[in-house]
Amino acid sequence: MKKIAYFLSILMWLTAIAPAAMAKNEPAEKEPSPEEQARLEQLDERVKEIKAMDFRSMDKEEKKEIRNELRDINKEAKELGGGVYISAGALIVILLLLIILT
């Protein structure tokens, strides 16, 4: 029984610590600049145009080009947008605290 408890405690510790160790140590920006916001809107409009296209009438090369363009748009949007990430361990701790304190 002690081995199982030891294993589970190590597993929970690794689940809580590993995502924080892999995260980038860059300072978070408060809000995107107006230029970045305008570029994000342009990317969003292009994605909407691509979703409205009829892919059945396209040949294989055209589909491949659009797929690559969408990947590039996704990468650029992630770089511009940033985001907030919560590890699984932190989420579990928050849920436990909410359950205990209510």
Score class of each variant (00 low, 15 high):
residue 98 L to A: 06
residue 78 K to R: 11
residue 79 E to R: 07
residue 76 E to Q: 04
residue 80 L to K: 03
residue 101 L to K: 07
residue 85 Y to A: 13
residue 100 I to S: 00
residue 32 P to Y: 03
residue 37 Q to M: 15
residue 20 A to G: 14
residue 44 D to I: 12
residue 84 V to M: 12
residue 26 E to Q: 09
residue 51 K to R: 11
residue 16 A to F: 04
residue 7 F to M: 03
residue 34 P to F: 06
residue 63 K to A: 02
residue 42 Q to A: 03
residue 5 A to I: 07
residue 3 K to V: 09
residue 31 E to A: 10
residue 47 V to Y: 04
residue 1 M to E: 11
residue 100 I to N: 01
residue 94 I to L: 07
residue 50 I to M: 00
residue 51 K to F: 11
residue 87 S to E: 05
residue 95 L to Q: 04
residue 78 K to Y: 13
residue 80 L to A: 04
residue 57 S to G: 03
residue 26 E to R: 15
residue 18 A to P: 13
residue 28 A to H: 12
residue 93 V to I: 15
residue 65 E to Y: 07
residue 89 G to F: 00
residue 35 E to G: 10
residue 38 A to T: 08
residue 13 W to Y: 14
residue 41 E to F: 12
residue 34 P to H: 00
residue 81 G to H: 00
residue 14 L to T: 05
residue 66 I to N: 02
residue 50 I to C: 00
residue 42 Q to R: 15
residue 67 R to E: 10
residue 62 E to M: 10
residue 70 L to S: 02
residue 56 R to A: 14
residue 41 E to M: 13
residue 46 R to E: 06
residue 1 M to Q: 10
residue 87 S to Q: 12
residue 74 N to P: 11
residue 10 I to R: 03
residue 14 L to R: 13
residue 22 M to N: 06
residue 58 M to A: 02
residue 28 A to L: 12
residue 17 I to V: 13
residue 95 L to A: 09
residue 69 E to S: 00
residue 38 A to P: 07
residue 1 M to P: 08
residue 14 L to Y: 12
residue 71 R to S: 12
residue 3 K to N: 10
residue 76 E to I: 14
residue 58 M to S: 04
residue 53 M to C: 04
residue 82 G to P: 01
residue 3 K to H: 11
residue 27 P to R: 09
residue 93 V to R: 04
residue 76 E to W: 08
residue 29 E to N: 12
residue 73 I to V: 04
residue 88 A to C: 03
residue 101 L to I: 12
residue 102 T to Q: 14
residue 52 A to C: 01
residue 75 K to Q: 08
residue 70 L to I: 04
residue 59 D to C: 00
residue 35 E to R: 13
residue 14 L to D: 02
residue 6 Y to M: 13
residue 72 D to H: 11
residue 17 I to F: 06
residue 5 A to M: 08
residue 42 Q to L: 11
residue 89 G to R: 02
residue 39 R to A: 00
residue 87 S to Y: 10
residue 48 K to V: 14
residue 54 D to G: 05
residue 38 A to I: 10
residue 72 D to P: 13
residue 14 L to K: 14
residue 60 K to W: 09
residue 97 L to N: 11
residue 15 T to W: 03
residue 95 L to E: 01
residue 11 L to Y: 10
residue 55 F to H: 04
residue 46 R to C: 03
residue 85 Y to V: 15
residue 68 N to C: 08
residue 44 D to L: 15
residue 74 N to D: 12
residue 55 F to W: 01
residue 47 V to H: 01
residue 90 A to Q: 11
residue 34 P to G: 00
residue 93 V to N: 02
residue 79 E to D: 05
residue 73 I to K: 06
residue 61 E to P: 07
residue 46 R to A: 02
residue 67 R to V: 10
residue 18 A to V: 13
residue 83 G to W: 01
residue 28 A to V: 13
residue 37 Q to E: 05
residue 54 D to M: 08
residue 37 Q to R: 13
residue 35 E to Y: 04
residue 40 L to I: 10
residue 23 A to E: 12
residue 36 E to A: 13
